[in-house]
Amino acid sequence: MAKITENTKDEVREIVYNFFSEECDVDLSEISDDTNVIRDIEGDSLMFLELIELFKKKYELHIELKSIGKYIVKHPAETIGELIDTTMLIIEFENGIVDL
């Protein structure tokens, strides 16, 4: 389980913003926490999968994708802000996210 520090959320936020800016070919200034990933910047679920893989490597997470899927089906993450919050839970709880 990764150690959460005060800086973790800022780090996650920066990675998520830069990731979608590059993947969706959108200027950083056009992205906010309220940006809807699919509707506003034409993101997709493969991008989300790529982002999860990125965080799994960065924070050495031991989590099965299906645990995230089971959480997402109950708590959909559609905006950048919601994705950041979900990512924080993934880092904090790993497979335990499914019981939240």
Binding site: S45, F48, L49, L65, K66, G69, K70, V73
Partner: peptide
């Protein structure tokens, strides 16, 4: 598949 953990 979605119920059983597919991301999408």
């Amino acid at each position: 598949f979605k119920e059983e953990g597919a991301l999408n």
